[in-house]
Design a protein around this nucleic acid. Structure first.
Length: 592
RNA sequence: CGGGGAGUAGCGCAGCUUGGUUAGCGCACAGCGUUUGGGACGCUGGGGUCGAAGGUUCAAAUCCUUUCUCCCCGACCA
């Protein structure tokens, strides 16, 4: 492709509203443009990267028996009502009506439609297992799009769905997809970590997330330094130990002036924060079959820990949570900042006590009176009932539940996930098959997603420097960036550049040919910005000695190649770029 | 939705506090000339409903009200 003809313009300055590196570089290198919040265009250069990624996805999905198909973006409400998600999912689901007033929505994902398809098409165990996938647009009306392609509203996802006669068959298949996922990410140059995750709105029995480790990530991973425990902080567990065991002491009320925070309280009473308990007040929205109800939730957790809202949502089976207002807190007889479950009216509320608080004797907690706390608060004596569950987050420094090793945390971007859905959708969408005895069973289902744009953003996050992007060869828009420095008078250089362009194209190489009339500096800077792995410069200086100059974008190394044997001379450098990916692929795949 | 910030040419910004000619600058863009191996220089030129609506005023980019959009931080996910 001639750069002079390419629909392309680089930006010298970073657009003011782009903060993360991948967003800035993808914009500046002319790969994408934002149309409105969270909705992007992929320009020709960006489209080529996308096609590279999609090709990898196709090859790897086909390799695990996936069959490509395509499903609609606009879907009837009925299917989502049938699965129940029409009611469970909030405003993320973009709803609308067609001209006759029929409720419709934009697909956030395609479980309903494919389960519906399978319910009509699969009748016998002989048709199972079957795996289908698509590379298709999804729309999620996110609260807040951010970070360029990292978090958008309209995006392209590779979503695959597998259907099995029973869980054993799914368990046999699932590891194949898990490994295929590692191959996809590694072929694109990304090193990822697979972790246990929450099932969220997907439901089902088990889920993994594939995380690209990055400071710009929105997720926190909890990992063990000793064993291979890895989980999203939303679900990560840890070993909880009672740090101050002992016999129960009598409850007493103490005056604690100006101790609205745990830190102040511990300091004032000269105790450790792990000897305190704190109350957290939330309102949960509970969605039952056809009712929606707000319930006040009174949580007790140890003072040095933080509430984990995902765990809480799962423990009480709520649809969503939001902080309670002061009025709502006082309505049950509690005092904000000095709350405890003693002598409050919880008849219309839900008490949830973290299991560690339930086990720990003699904690200090609020006395529901400004400037007063209780000492020696004991669950089962001073208050009881409610639900006892793990509702706090694992943090750096906690102990691994499996081995006792030290936990630490990293930030990551979720580039893919896999869900063992079980029979949730097959039952609601009526997807049953007959076994060899003629009896009917729900089909066992799983779904597997990878965000194409997010994957690209993660590649750029991982592969860039201060001058621009440094594409891995496997996803680079072109393999070689040919830069002609010919001036109007240097017709010999011009001619040689044209010949070289044609020759390299004949060799089957993907070439971006900078034939523009700009000065050298402009071209070099654009080349570094775009980030094609190999830059081939042809100018009067080298050509007068029969040479062209090769620069490896990744390392900055320069080599003089004989102008007459460029394709041959180029081969080892292309191979070296290829080898980087092969090295990544050769690594062991960590077990799920 | 809560908190913070910003909307002036394709991009980056100044002007606004203290209203006053024809709204400026750099980059980008077009033409001509000189240049030509790491973002050249000169001359000329095109491009703006100053986010929108309403108001105050002799006069509004500037003051007031309303509204829309975008970005960043917190509750969601590929």
């Amino acid at each position: 492709m001639r750069l002079s003809k390419l629909f392309f313009q680089s930006l010298r300055d970073n657009p003011a509203d782009a903060e993360v590196a991948s967003h800035q570089l993808l914009l500046r290198a002319g790969l994408i443009r934002q149309v409105t919040s969270g909705i992007f265009e992929f320009l020709p250069l960006g489209m080529r990267v996308r096609q590279k990624v999609e090709q990898i996805l196709r090859e790897e999905m086909n390799a695990v028996d996936g069959q490509e198909m395509i499903m609609p973006v606009v879907q009837p409400a009925e299917l989502w009502q049938q699965s129940g998600r029409w009611y469970q999912i909030g405003d993320d689901l973009m709803r609308m009506q067609d001209r006759s007033g029929r409720d419709m929505c934009l697909a956030m994902t395609h479980e309903e439609v494919i389960a519906d398809l399978v319910s009509h098409s699969v009748n016998s165990y002989k048709q199972l297992p079957v795996v289908m996938y698509q590379i298709q647009t999804k729309f999620r009306d996110e609260l807040r799009a951010r970070g360029g392609l990292l978090r958008v509203r309209e995006f392209t996802m590779k979503d695959a769905y597998s259907f099995h006669a029973d869980f054993e068959d799914l368990d046999r298949y699932y590891p194949r997809m898990y490994e295929a996922y590692f191959r996809v990410f590694r072929r694109a140059g990304l090193d990822v970590v697979a972790i246990e995750s929450d099932n969220g709105m997907m439901g089902g029995t088990m889920a993994h997330e594939f995380m690209a480790i990055s400071e710009v990530g929105e997720d926190t991973l909890v990992l063990c330094r000793n064993c291979n425990y890895r989980a999203n902080r939303q679900v990560a567990t840890f070993r909880k130990t009672v740090v101050h065991p002992g016999a129960r002491l009598p409850l007493e009320s103490v005056h604690t002036p100006d101790c609205a925070t745990i830190e102040d309280l511990a300091k004032y009473l000269d105790i450790a924060e792990d000897q305190t308990a704190k109350a957290i007040f939330l309102v949960a929205t509970m969605v039952r079959s056809d009712t929606v109800e707000d319930v006040f939730v009174f949580c007790m957790i140890r003072g040095d820990m933080t509430l984990n809202e995902t765990k809480l949502i799962n423990a009480i089976n709520a649809a969503s949570l939001h902080p309670a207002s002061e009025a709502e807190i006082r309505a049950v007889g509690a005092e904000p900042g000095y709350g405890s479950p003693v002598d409050v009216d919880l008849s219309h509320s839900l008490l949830v006590v973290d299991d560690l608080v339930a086990q720990s004797p003699n904690l200090v907690a609020g006395a529901n009176k400004v400037n007063f706390h209780y000492k020696n608060l004991n669950y089962g004596r001073d208050y009881d009932g409610g639900l006892v569950a793990d509702i706090v987050s694992a943090e750096t420094g906690h102990s691994c539940e499996n081995c006792g090793g030290e936990l630490y945390s990293l930030r990551g971007v979720e580039v893919g996930n896999t869900f063992k859905l079980g029979t949730k959708y097959s039952e609601t969408m009526d997807a049953y098959y007959s076994d060899n005895q003629g009896s009917s069973h729900p089909i066992v289902m799983a779904s597997y997603g990878i965000g194409v744009g997010r994957l690209i953003a993660c590649v750029v996050e991982q592969y860039h420097d201060e001058n621009g992007i440094i594409w891995p060869l496997s996803v680079a828009p072109y393999a070689v960036h040919l830069i002609s420095l010919a001036t109007a008078k240097q017709t010999d250089v011009q001619t040689k550049a044209e010949c070289l362009y044609e020759e390299l194209k004949r060799e089957g190489l993907e070439i971006l040919y900078d034939d523009r009339a700009d000065r050298a500096g402009v071209k070099f800077n654009d080349a570094d910005l775009i980030g094609i792995p190999l830059q081939l410069t042809i100018g009067n200086r080298g050509l007068s000695q029969g040479k062209v100059e090769l620069k490896v974008r990744r390392t900055g190394e320069r080599h003089m190649l004989n102008a007459d044997e460029v394709p041959v001379a180029l081969a080892p450098f292309l191979q070296a770029e290829e080898n980087l990916i092969q090295d990544l692929l050769a690594r062991d795949i960590p077990q799920a």
